[in-house]
Structure formats: structure tokens, C-alpha cells
Nucleic acid binder design. Structure first.
Length: 194
DNA sequence: CGACCGATCGTCT
DNA sequence: GACGATCGGTCGA
């Protein structure tokens, strides 16, 4: 069943990063449903977090989505090439977000392969999963409780020892905050180099 | 294997 | 004018 508003507004990025693991990310496409199970996430925890776009309470046209309602998609272009997909959580004016770093493809795999012919690494990173699913800047600001892009609970329960934590990727500029264990990954998912 | 590097452009200063 | 919450190819060991 589709996650409702309360799921997103009633928790912070840290707990949401855990609870979004094992959930199904779904898009409606012209071909039907395209989806994958979240296998890796990262928490970006508000204005105190040096790795976050919202660090120091910074507010720009780009990151303003992060200050909005939990249950909103935050999609932005990284390195001029890749769209990264984030789930905004927590309350208005508290800029918490969860970056989805990897998925396990479930529905619409044929469609994903057409978009990414070299399927070996098709959903192994935050930039490639958006390409596989067809997520782009049109989804920035999308309401995750509506019917274009959403997340479903498919009954996957993860035990504590099935979740691996570690430091976030690509945030060296964040100083001490780069070391925080804000990265979460399903232990049994395809191994990804640290 | 691992290290390195070019691609590519919206966003912010 | 500089810089990314990255990726995939290449090069050398």
C-alpha cells in the first residue's frame, strides 16, 4: 500500500532513511508501472548538517523544496549530468531529506533496459537509478502521495542486522559531518564498493 | 583490480 | 567563474 502523508511528516531523515529501505519506489509511465525496491539511502539532516544543501539555514530557489512538506520529491541535477532523487521528510521549515542511492528493479525492467542498454550497473548509484526509472527534473516538487511517483510498503521487514550503516558518499567537503554514519544499505543487496 | 579523468550544465557568488 | 550528494571509460600494475 502507498505510504501516506504521515509517514513522511512524522519522522526525521535518519529514521526515514532506515524505514524507506525495503519500500517500493513506483513511477507511472506510458508503459505502465516502473518500480524498484530501495536498497540504499542517505540521510541529510537539516541546517546543522554540513553535507546538506540546507546547511546553515541556506535557502535558495533550488533547495527551497527541502523546506516544504514531508512527502515531496526533491530532484536536482548533479555534475551537470545526473538527476538525484530525494524524499523530503519531517515538518515544514525543517529541511530533512533522504537520498535514494540504489534500487533493486522490480517492475518495468524491460523499459529500464531500453533506457540503459549496459544494464550491469543499471541501478547501482543515485544517478543511474533515476535514469532507469525515468526520474527527471519534471519530478522535482512532485507530491509523493499523488499518482505520478510514489512509494509503497510491500511488507518487507528488515531486522537490525540486515541494515548496514556507514559514512555518506561524495561529501568530503562536509568536514567532520562526512564521517557520520548516515548511509544505510540492505546487507543482502548487491555489494557496492564502499 | 585501483587511480585517474573527462563529461556537462544549473545554480550560486 | 567555479563547483558539485556522479558515472563510466581508460590506463597502468
Amino acid at each position: 500500500m502507498k505510504l501516506t502523508r504521515g509517514f513522511y511528516t512524522d519522522q526525521n531523515a535518519l529514521s526515514a532513511s532506515r524505514s524507506l529501505l525495503g519500500k517500493l519506489l513506483v513511477l507511472r509511465s506510458s508503459m505502465g508501472r516502473v518500480s524498484g525496491i530501495n536498497t540504499e539511502t542517505e540521510a541529510y539532516c537539516g541546517m546543522e548538517d554540513r553535507a546538506s544543501h540546507a546547511f546553515g539555514g541556506k535557502r535558495t530557489p533550488r533547495n527551497s523544496i527541502m523546506y516544504g512538506k514531508g512527502g515531496t520529491a526533491y530532484v536536482y541535477l548533479c555534475y551537470g549530468i545526473h538527476h538525484l532523487f530525494n524524499v523530503v521528510v519531517h515538518h515544514v521549515d525543517v529541511p530533512h531529506a533522504v537520498l535514494v542511492r540504489a534500487i533493486q528493479p522490480m517492475e518495468g525492467i524491460q523499459e529500464m533496459l531500453e533506457r540503459r542498454p549496459n544494464a550491469r550497473t543499471s541501478t547501482g548509484g543515485p544517478g543511474t537509478l533515476t535514469q532507469a526509472l525515468g526520474i527527471g527534473s519534471v519530478h522535482n516538487g512532485a507530491d509523493l502521495t499523488a499518482d505520478r511517483i510514489w512509494i509503497e510498503d510491500i511488507g518487507v521487514k528488515l531486522k537490525r542486522n540486515e541494515v548496514i550503516t556507514g559514512p555518506r558518499i561524495g561529501v568530503e567537503y562536509a568536514g567532520v559531518d562526512a564521517l557520520l554514519p548516515y548511509r544505510f544499505r540492505i546487507a543482502t543487496s548487491r555489494a557496492i564498493p564502499t
